[in-house]
Design a protein around this nucleic acid. Structure first.
Lengths: 148, 148
DNA sequence: TTGGATAGTCAAGTTGCTTGACCATATGGT
DNA sequence: ACCATATGGTCAAGCAACTTGACTATCCAA
């Protein structure tokens, strides 16, 4: 594969990713969740199972713990998360999602499903399933970092 | 396809995109082009054919023309682009890439090819070709907007 | 020729991150 | 038991990449 073809593939991938983020964000806003930024969604995926500490979040998002702390401030102020005392470590605080936060993630899932449905109309469901099989195999494991 | 599956597919796509941007950026830096940000690459793709005006760039990148102008300032200061008088419109200025700028895009293409080659090792070349066929069909046409 | 649209820049404000400094609590070696 | 060091978290200040607002120069159509 030529370098220029690799670049074209990369550009297409980034265009799809950028469009998808925009679609999900618009869908979440349209469902009544204002003031939430796409990066909050990445935070939600880490908080959802059992909550997380600020430091956990910082590692997951690939930012400093100060930045993660500010992000949590924002989520708390907007009613999406709460800080609780940590059950076993008095230094730490466990950040957990509120019901409103969980509702917001459901809205994001619905919006994502809408976008994927449109892909199915173009590619067919079989190919979308193939996408869903291929992408996780080449996804890096590290922090979710926009980085551009 | 369930909503949660759509979300998992989305997450995988965004992880791949984030990793790819990081890979390309690292590769460009490793080839000796410092102080260049990923967004500059998107600007290069618009400048490469015949140059572009600041307003063209702003539309392409999805930012204000002031932001585009600042970005061009930066590219000029770092030797990747030059401002020339526009051949037919005395208000406008044509921004064109320097040889160093073109060398930088070649470095980005090499880095992209490296990343894609690693995908081939995991998925096989046939599936990567299939990716290259599918993604452009679902890529939105609008501005290249990171948006998160 | 003149009034409004367009290309571009300058200046100031906002925001989301960073680095640096600091306190509280945990942990492990002696 | 005690202290040195590591770790979790926050406060404060700074920075970089955008934004909005205001302005000049040029184009173009009535």
């Amino acid at each position: 594969m030529q370098n220029s073809e690799a670049m074209a593939l990369s550009a297409a991938l980034l265009a799809v990713a950028g469009g998808l983020v925009q679609r999900i964000h618009d869908g979440v806003v349209a469902r009544g969740f204002e003031g939430v930024r796409p990066m909050h969604g990445f935070a939600f995926t880490r908080l959802a199972p059992d909550g997380a500490t600020v430091t956990d979040l910082a590692v997951h998002l690939g930012v400093t713990k100060q930045a993660a702390s500010q992000l949590v401030d924002d989520l708390v102020r907007k009613g999406y998360a709460e800080r609780h005392p940590h059950p076993v470590d008095a230094r730490a605080r466990l950040v957990v999602m509120t019901e409103r936060g969980r509702a917001c993630t459901r809205a994001a899932e619905e919006a994502a499903a809408e976008a994927v449905r449109e892909w199915s109309e173009v590619l067919g469901e079989a190919e979308v399933r193939e996408l869903a099989r291929m992408l996780p195999r080449i996804a890096p494991g590290g922090p979710i970092r926009p980085a551009w």
